[in-house]
Amino acid sequence: MNAKEILAQLVAIPSVVGTSNGAIVDFIRGWLGERNVSSTIIAGPEGDRFNLFATIGDASVAGGYVLSGHTDVVPAQEATWTSDPFALKQDGERLIGRGAVDMKGFVSCMLAAVPAFLEKRLDRPLHLAFSYDEEAGCRGMPHLIERLPSLCAPPAGCIVGEPTNMRAVLRHKGKMAARLSMTGRSGHSSRPELGLNAIHGMADIIACIRDEAARHTREGPFNPIFEPPCSTLQAGVISGGSAVNVIPAHCALDMEIRAIPGVDPMSLFGPVERAARRLGAEGGYQVETTILSSYPGLDLRNDDPLVALAESISGKPNAGAVSFGTEAGLYQKAGIPAVVCGPGDIARAHRANEFILESELAECQAVLERLAERLC
């Protein structure tokens, strides 16, 4: 199968974030096994989600490169899809389907290039990494990286294949997401003094998030290569209450923080967490905080050898920085230089009629094969 045929197989597996990815991992493992490439499954604590890692060449040799892609996709609930999102449709050069560009296109190129990798006498290995639940805040990758020292000698670098039009991205923001659950005391709305309104309590948390966001907009720190050039905080989802005449006893809020490189996203959560503790100590509320996800930013130096390599094999100058986040920051935190470089445009992701071009698949596969040539 070529990359387009593999992509059709991958798109047909609805590996939606937060659900089991066993079927797609089985497909990838089977594809590799048919070509005598052994692989290792790294299970996550969820019990139904798995990372997969394989090496072509000698895994005990240091200085190889990791090609990294995630297996999950966002849901396809948009009403404006013009075809089945989980059946790849061709419209001219467009290949339409959920995950076509984010990022099963890159994964299909990884697999399509395997026969070419196997034909070469690699002096340094190529490692293939497939993760789960990247779309939920890179939840799967930390478990894979934890196992990496036992799976291979230290790699020289990593290419994370998110869509960047095959231009190497060197920097992106870090992120954390949290859920705050507040419990007050229910009662009839005619006697508010007898209850404890959880939504009113959560309003103080929202005000804190709003004020912290405004402070960072005014005071920074700033990094002008990003848009916006500062760290950001946002209240994203809120739920609570049952009826207008009932004092709400429960309220839940999901929020996120995106931090410029050099700023720990968790450190920006401190004021919000302190506000929650005050409401518990002084306001009588019970407040629980759950960290949903957290990953660091990416900040690769322009003179890192991986930058020159990525520019050379892609034939394109690097793209500097992007606003979205990836698993590349986790590789860098683990001591592995990383760039983000993959086929297609991120603007097509997470929307109806997501697509990648056949020519973009061909370009990506050619770049991966040029990388393998550098390792011979």
Rank of each mutant, 00 (worst) to 15 (best):
A8E: 12
L10Y: 08
V11A: 12
N21I: 10
G33L: 15
R35V: 14
T40M: 14
T40E: 14
I41F: 05
I42Y: 04
I42C: 09
G44T: 13
T55L: 03
S60G: 13
V61D: 07
Y65R: 11
D72N: 13
P75W: 05
P75S: 13
A76K: 06
T80R: 09
T80A: 11
W81E: 06
S83D: 06
F86K: 08
A87E: 09
R94E: 03
A100T: 12
A100M: 08
A100E: 06
D102T: 05
M103F: 08
M103D: 10
A113Q: 06
P115K: 06
K120N: 00
R124M: 11
P125Q: 13
E134I: 01
E134C: 03
E135T: 04
E146F: 06
C158E: 05
G161S: 15
G161A: 14
R167F: 11
A168E: 08
G174V: 00
S181T: 14
S189Q: 06
S190Y: 00
L194G: 07
L196A: 08
A198I: 05
M202A: 06
C208D: 10
G220V: 05
P224Q: 10
L233G: 01
V237E: 11
V237H: 05
G240M: 11
S242N: 11
M255G: 02
I257E: 01
A259D: 01
G262V: 01
V263Y: 03
P265T: 03
M266D: 10
F269T: 13
G270M: 04
R277T: 15
L279F: 04
E282I: 12
G283D: 02
Y285E: 14
S294I: 05
P296Y: 01
D304T: 05
P305T: 13
L309W: 00
S312I: 04
G320S: 15
Q332E: 06
G335R: 11
V340R: 02
C341V: 04
A352F: 02
E354K: 05
C364P: 10
Q365H: 10
L368I: 13
E369H: 07
R370Y: 09
A372K: 07
C376L: 07
